[in-house]
Amino acid sequence: MSYEKPLPGVNPQPKGHLSQHRLDPNRSVPGAITFALGRVSDAPLQYLMFTQGWAVKGLTAVGLRASNLLITAGPGVADLGPIPTLLTGMYAVAGLRHAYWVLFTNAYNWPPSAALEVVGYNTFMSTLNTLVAVNALTSSPLPILGDFTDCIGWKQWAGLALFGIGISMEIVAEESRKSFKKDPKNKGKIDDTGLWSVVRHPNYLGYTLWRAGITLTTGSLIATAALTAFQVLTFTSGGIPGISSYMSSKYGKQWTDYTRRVPSAIIPGIL
């Protein structure tokens, strides 16, 4: 669309503050660097959570079961077992994807304070998933012997599929909107092409799907349901109303007509 979203995974700034970012096309170099470095540091941090026993210590401190041995048991990479290996890889891909977004796709000014907010949110979500995974490993029915594929089950395969679909959707939505906005013929128009013709916020849907995929890979269905519901609530109660208010004030009838053509905000036919 011809607006810039709040950074992935956070509620928007207060309306006036958010509009100020959108109206100022001068990019904040410190903000972009802070955001990029913060996101790519997520995977190394979670790797240390696994390998240095920080996740186990945190869980046992609150009376939950956890074992350092089960983190490293089975085939994996860099002293990790199969599920921690998958999760660390997913964290890395997501972090690199967001770093690319802020450096090459985003064209608006996001100061370091906003960058730190989104980095903090995503780090918090990843840390929760790491803790869930370590706890789930203590009662996992999956084998720890054999090759890599022997040691993961349907939840991990489904999680990988959701992750791949979500990341792809987020990339396609953002890059297609960037191309739409660059075309002089589309100046002053709302992008209602491609994924933007299906839901009004396909980037949010993509983000929600890949976040759900990571959580499902931990092996916990309860955590997957809870964290996915939390993510949808975060968008529907924060990000989406803020964007809708901004778009309505900027585009007026064009926005009203668009919402009639595309009534679903984030989940086709449901929400």
Score class of each variant (00 low, 15 high):
Thr85Asp: 09
Cys151Ile: 06
Leu221Glu: 00
Asp79Thr: 14
Gly219Gln: 01
Met169Val: 03
Ile267Tyr: 15
Ala265Leu: 13
Met247Tyr: 02
Leu7Phe: 01
Phe235Gln: 05
Glu4Cys: 01
Thr208Trp: 07
Ser264Val: 07
Pro44Val: 00
Asp147Cys: 06
Pro30Thr: 08
Lys250Trp: 11
Gly81Pro: 05
Thr149Cys: 02
Thr215Cys: 03
Phe230Thr: 00
Thr127Cys: 13
Asn68Ile: 08
Leu271Gly: 08
Gly194Met: 05
Val56Leu: 09
Ile266Ser: 13
Ile267Val: 15
Lys15Ile: 12
Thr72Arg: 06
Gln231Trp: 00
Gln20Asp: 11
Phe230Asn: 04
His201Gly: 01
Phe148Ser: 00
Val118Met: 05
Gly16Met: 10
Thr224Gln: 07
Gln52Trp: 08
Leu205Phe: 13
Val10Ala: 03
Leu128Ile: 14
Asn26Ala: 09
Leu221Thr: 04
Ser139Asn: 12
Gly81Phe: 10
Gly146Lys: 13
Ser19Met: 08
Thr228Arg: 00
Leu195Trp: 12
Ser113Gln: 14
Leu205Pro: 01
Phe180Thr: 04
Pro143Glu: 06
Val56Ser: 03
Pro111Arg: 15
Ala158Cys: 11
Val102Cys: 07
Thr105Asn: 15
Val118Asn: 10
Ser140Asp: 03
Val132Glu: 10
Gln46Ile: 04
Met49Tyr: 12
Leu128Val: 15
Leu69Gln: 15
Ala55Pro: 11
Thr51Asp: 02
Ala115Tyr: 04
Val134Asp: 13
Thr224Gly: 03
Tyr207Gly: 01
Leu96Tyr: 00
Ala265Phe: 15
Val102Tyr: 04
Met1Arg: 04
Thr217Ala: 01
Lys181Ile: 10
